[in-house]
Simulated scan of single mutants.
Amino acid sequence: MTKLIAIEEHFLTPDIRAAWAASPIQDGTSAFDRGEIESRLDDLGGGRIALMDEAGIDVQVLSVTTPALHNLDPEQSIDLARQTNDLLAATVAKHPTRFQAFAVLPTASPAEAALELERTIAQPGFAGTMLCGRTRDKNLDHPDLRPIFATAAKLGAPVFIHPQIPQRSVRDVLYGGFGEPIDTAFAAFGLGWHYEAGIQFVRLTLAGVFDEFPDLQIILGHWGEVVLFYLERLNALARVTKLQRPIDDYFRQNLYVTPSGMWSQEYMQRSLKIVGPERILFSTDYPYQYRPGAPGKAFLEAAGLSEQHKKLFANGNWRRLTSSIQRF
Results as ranks from 00 to 15, higher is better:
120 T>G: 01
120 T>L: 04
122 A>H: 07
123 Q>R: 15
123 Q>F: 03
123 Q>M: 11
124 P>L: 08
128 G>M: 13
128 G>V: 11
128 G>H: 05
129 T>E: 00
130 M>T: 13
131 L>Y: 07
131 L>E: 00
132 C>A: 10
133 G>S: 10
134 R>M: 09
139 N>V: 08
139 N>Q: 09
140 L>I: 14
141 D>A: 12
141 D>W: 08
142 H>F: 07
142 H>G: 03
143 P>Y: 12
143 P>V: 12
143 P>Q: 10
144 D>E: 10
144 D>W: 09
145 L>W: 11
149 F>R: 05
149 F>K: 04
149 F>N: 02
153 A>F: 07
154 K>F: 03
154 K>H: 09
155 L>M: 10
155 L>K: 11
156 G>H: 13
156 G>Q: 14
157 A>E: 02
158 P>R: 14
160 F>W: 13
161 I>S: 04
161 I>G: 02
162 H>Q: 03
162 H>S: 00
162 H>N: 03
164 Q>P: 00
166 P>F: 04
167 Q>P: 06
169 S>V: 13
169 S>H: 10
172 D>W: 04
173 V>N: 01
174 L>T: 08
174 L>R: 15
175 Y>G: 02
177 G>F: 06
179 G>P: 07
180 E>N: 08
181 P>Y: 08
186 F>M: 13
187 A>V: 12
187 A>D: 02
190 G>L: 14
190 G>E: 10
194 H>L: 05
195 Y>N: 04
195 Y>V: 14
197 A>D: 01
197 A>M: 06
198 G>I: 01
201 F>V: 08
201 F>G: 00
202 V>R: 03
203 R>M: 06
203 R>Q: 07
205 T>H: 13
206 L>N: 02
207 A>C: 09
208 G>P: 06
209 V>Y: 07
212 E>L: 12
212 E>Q: 14
214 P>T: 11
215 D>W: 14
215 D>S: 15
215 D>T: 15
216 L>F: 08
217 Q>R: 15
218 I>A: 03
219 I>H: 05
221 G>F: 05
221 G>W: 09
221 G>H: 05
222 H>E: 05
223 W>V: 00
225 E>W: 02
227 V>C: 08
228 L>R: 05
229 F>R: 06
230 Y>W: 12
230 Y>P: 00
230 Y>S: 06
234 L>K: 11
234 L>F: 14
239 R>G: 01
241 T>R: 11
243 L>K: 09
248 D>M: 13
251 F>Y: 14
251 F>K: 03
251 F>D: 01
252 R>L: 07
253 Q>G: 06
253 Q>K: 15
254 N>Y: 10
254 N>V: 14
255 L>D: 00
256 Y>Q: 03
257 V>N: 02
257 V>G: 01
259 P>L: 03
261 G>D: 01
263 W>I: 01
263 W>V: 00
264 S>F: 00
